[in-house]
Amino acid sequence: MLNSRLQRNLWGYVFIGPFVIGFLCFTIIPMMASLYFSFTSYGLFDSPKWIGLGNYTKMFTEDPRYLQSLKVTIIYVLGGVPLRLAFALLVAMLLNAGSRAVGLYRTMYYLPSLIGGSVAVAIMWRNIFGDAGIVNLALGGLGLDAIRWFGEPTAALWMLIFLSIWQFGSSMLIFLAGLKSIPSSFYEAASVDGANFFQKFFKITLPMLSPVLLFNIIMQTIAAFMTFVPAFIISKGTGGPLDGTLLYSLYLFKQGFEYFNMGYASAMAWVMLLIVAALTGIIFWTSKYWVHYESEVK
């Protein structure tokens, strides 16, 4: 009896063994090391020197570039994620309403998400927003003034936000799957009761979709907070102009691997972890006020 239980446990750990070992070697040990480094001054060629909370106080009191990177990242997240999800929901509802050729449209809307993380797309984005790029041509065609996207810190940041919104396709697919699972009888019953479009949207669609929405808000917020490639490529690694696109990950990378302040970069990583954890916690906490689970009895 004891023997069979031992055997069962053994089999379990044989199978999940790779995960346990990988977690220890590539996650928990590096995490502990990074926590230690965050309390040290650690350059490339010297050994870590304990400086207590020095890195953390420096971040918030002596490093305006850090505060700048925090600011642009918050604008990037707050500007990008809600717009991206709003577009995703709007287009998902449009596609859900249409019957024919939806497969083709679904593919077309998903393509930007598919290729959005690539260097090729970042290069493309850089060039369509250039001074003589098609975005400025289009603005000119609408009778608006051209914008110097690479000269203005705010404009440059919005260029990144537009790139993030452009990739709403994957969220749209998830919403579309969610919309398809809402029984059409709900809408029919509401129609019989004389509900208009907005009433149906707010009383049926949104509550039924809210668990999917919650999941998307959390995952997209975390992913947006960690965005690196577009900022790195579009600003050619500088975060410019005037640190306007210096996203958190990019500044952390520069501190670690350009200025070789490994201790400082580790401290930045830990603050990032705390921010991501706090954001997730806050979103979860608010969810009890707006997320509706079907098994819930009211």
Binding site: F26, P30, M31, F37, M226, G256, M262, A269, M272
Partner: peptide
């Protein structure tokens, strides 16, 4: 976030 384990 990958950044937390990146440097070590």
């Amino acid at each position: 976030p990958y950044e937390v384990v990146m440097i070590p």
